[in-house]
Amino acid sequence: MNVRRSTAYTGNASFLLRITPANLLGLLDFANFVWIKYIFPIFIVGLPIVFLLASMIRKRRLAAS
């Protein structure tokens, strides 16, 4: 029973150490590169267009019924 408990603690600790970023500055550079070039244009331009199209389709369906 004691071996299972110590294995669980060791496994959890090694997992938490493994998911921490090795290079925080590299992680920040990657986040800035991805978010500024790809995600923000989708949220600023693409998402409102999707909402507009969805509202137009909904309006047509409500008018037809």
Rank of each mutant, 00 (worst) to 15 (best):
R61T: 10
V50E: 01
S6E: 15
A63V: 09
T10P: 01
F30S: 08
G46D: 01
R18K: 04
R60V: 07
F30V: 05
F43K: 06
V34Q: 03
K37Y: 05
G46T: 02
P21C: 00
Y9L: 14
L17S: 03
S65L: 11
F33V: 08
W35N: 08
G11L: 07
F33N: 08
N12Q: 10
T7I: 14
F51W: 08
I49N: 06
R5H: 11
A64Y: 15
V34L: 07
N2Q: 12
S14A: 15
L62A: 12
S65P: 07
V3C: 05
L52D: 06
L52K: 11
R58M: 09
R4T: 13
Y9E: 14
V34R: 07
W35A: 10
F15H: 05
G11R: 00
Y38R: 04
A64P: 00
L27E: 04
N23A: 07
F30Y: 12
G26A: 06
F43H: 04
P21A: 03
A54P: 02
R18L: 12
A22L: 03
T7V: 15
R5L: 15
I39Q: 00
I44R: 04
D29A: 13
R5C: 09
A64H: 14
L62G: 02
R60M: 13
I39H: 02
I49F: 10
A13S: 09
R61D: 14
I36D: 07
G11A: 13
L25T: 12
D29P: 02
T7D: 15
L24T: 10
A8V: 12
I42N: 02
T20A: 14
G46S: 01
W35G: 05
N32I: 11
I49T: 07
S6T: 15
L62P: 01
L25C: 04
Y38D: 03
F51Y: 10
R61Y: 09
K37P: 00
V3Y: 07
A8H: 08
P41S: 00
N2R: 15
R61A: 09
L47A: 06
S55Y: 12
I44H: 07
A63T: 05
S14F: 09
L53H: 07
D29E: 13
I39S: 01
W35L: 14
R61G: 04
L17I: 01
S65Y: 13
S14D: 08
P21I: 03
